[in-house]
Amino acid sequence: MKQMLRICAFAGTLAIAPAVADEDTLFADLGGQKGIDRIVEKSVDNYLADPRIGAIFDESNIERIRAQLKDHFCMVAGGPCKYAGHSMSDAHRGLHLTNANFNALVEDLQSAMDFLGVPFITQNRLLARLAPMQHDVVTR
């Protein structure tokens, strides 16, 4: 029992400690707007080159998507911008995206951040805020 309590205390400490430290520094930790712009540029390049999802963007205005993603990521990261685009569910309505599509977007974003040298732990803080959007984005 004592051993179990110790393990639980250890688990609790691990789970809580980083959460306390996460006083919205994410925008800064991603390199501010400049860093986010680079992440978006590289991610969108990856999306278009990805055989799994590239075709989804065939009918899209790519420059508009880049601009809106920059605003959106900035807002999600706690930065000083307003995302004025469509809601997540509106923006992806009719695309019939699957979880495999959503995860491909995540993997391309991860490899963009790897490419730009964003630390794994910082990547995960951003991904944690984007992950719940699966509920609105994936419809199939």
């Binding site: 688990a11 980083p18 794994f120 995960n124 803080r125 944690a128």
Partner: peptide, 9 residues
């Protein structure tokens, strides 16, 4: 998965 903390419990 506590993704922001990179911890799985």
């Amino acid at each position: 998965l506590f993704l922001a903390q990179s911890v799985l419990a």
